[in-house]
């Protein structure tokens, strides 16, 4: 099953992931002003939340990671050396 971790220190509480998730996996924790995971079992690992999160505050574990053949391997190897 998918496991989702939210880095509460990184989360800015913008609520973008709450709005974007089609399966209502997230909710806002009004007390903390941060996102919390409420329906992990409904996550289909589309990773829209990753794309929209301005703080890159989440991690998904145990998911099918889609192939990324669109990434140029030569460019990637140069970036790996730089970063």
């Amino acid at each position: 099953m998918v496991k989702i971790e939210i880095d509460e220190e990184a989360c800015v509480g913008c609520g973008s992931c709450v709005e974007d998730c089609p399966n209502d996996v997230y909710e806002m924790d009004e007390e903390k002003g941060k996102t919390k995971v409420v329906k992990e079992e409904d996550c289909m690992a589309c990773l829209s939340c990753h794309e929209i999160c301005p703080a890159q505050a989440m991690e998904h574990h145990d998911i099918h990671v889609a192939k990324r053949l669109y990434i140029d391997r030569k460019v990637k190897s140069v970036l790996d050396k730089m970063i």
């Binding site: 089609p22 690992a45 589309c46 829209s48």
Partner: peptide, 10 residues
């Protein structure tokens, strides 16, 4: 198409 994402589409 219900939803599109960078890793999967429903």
């Amino acid at each position: 198409i219900d939803h599109v994402g960078p890793n999967a589409c429903l």
